[in-house]
Amino acid sequence: MLNRTPRHEKIIQLIRESGFMPIDELARVLDVTPQTIRRDINQLCEENILRRYHGGASLGSSVENEDYFSRKNKLQSEKAHIADVIAAHIPDNASLFMSIGTTIEAVALALVKSHKNLSIITNNIHVASIVSSRSDYTVMITSGVVRAVDGGITGVATIDFINQFKVDYAVLGASSIEQDGSLLDFDYKEVSVMQAMMKNARIRYLAVDHSKFGRNALVRMGDITEFHALFTDEELSAALGKKLADHGVKWYLADKEDE
Rank of each mutant, 00 (worst) to 15 (best):
I12Y: 01
D168K: 10
V149W: 01
F213H: 05
F20D: 11
Y68N: 08
M197G: 03
A83R: 08
N200K: 10
G144C: 08
F97Y: 12
V193A: 15
N216Q: 14
P6A: 06
G181S: 13
Q195S: 07
F186S: 02
V208N: 12
V167I: 13
G19P: 01
R51Q: 13
D255E: 14
F231M: 09
E25Y: 00
N42S: 15
A80M: 06
I153C: 02
N65A: 11
I15N: 12
I86L: 09
L206I: 09
E259P: 01
V149N: 12
K74D: 05
M21R: 14
G101F: 06
I100L: 06
R215L: 04
N163L: 06
E105D: 03
D209E: 11
L172S: 09
K10C: 04
A87K: 08
V112P: 07
R220C: 03
S18E: 14
H89C: 09
D67L: 05
A174L: 03
G56Y: 08
R4Q: 11
K256H: 15
I159P: 01
A128C: 08
R51S: 10
N73V: 00
I224T: 09
T158N: 14
K166S: 15
R220I: 03
D24W: 04
T103P: 05
A229L: 01
T158R: 09
D246C: 11
G222K: 08
S114V: 07
N73I: 04
K10M: 12
T142F: 04
S61G: 09
N3R: 13
P6N: 10
T102P: 06
L75G: 02
L253G: 10
E47H: 11
D84G: 02
E25R: 13
G241Q: 13
I141H: 07
S132G: 12
S114W: 01
H8P: 09
F186H: 05
V85H: 07
Y188C: 00
V156F: 08
C45A: 15
N93R: 13
T5S: 15
I159N: 09
R202W: 01
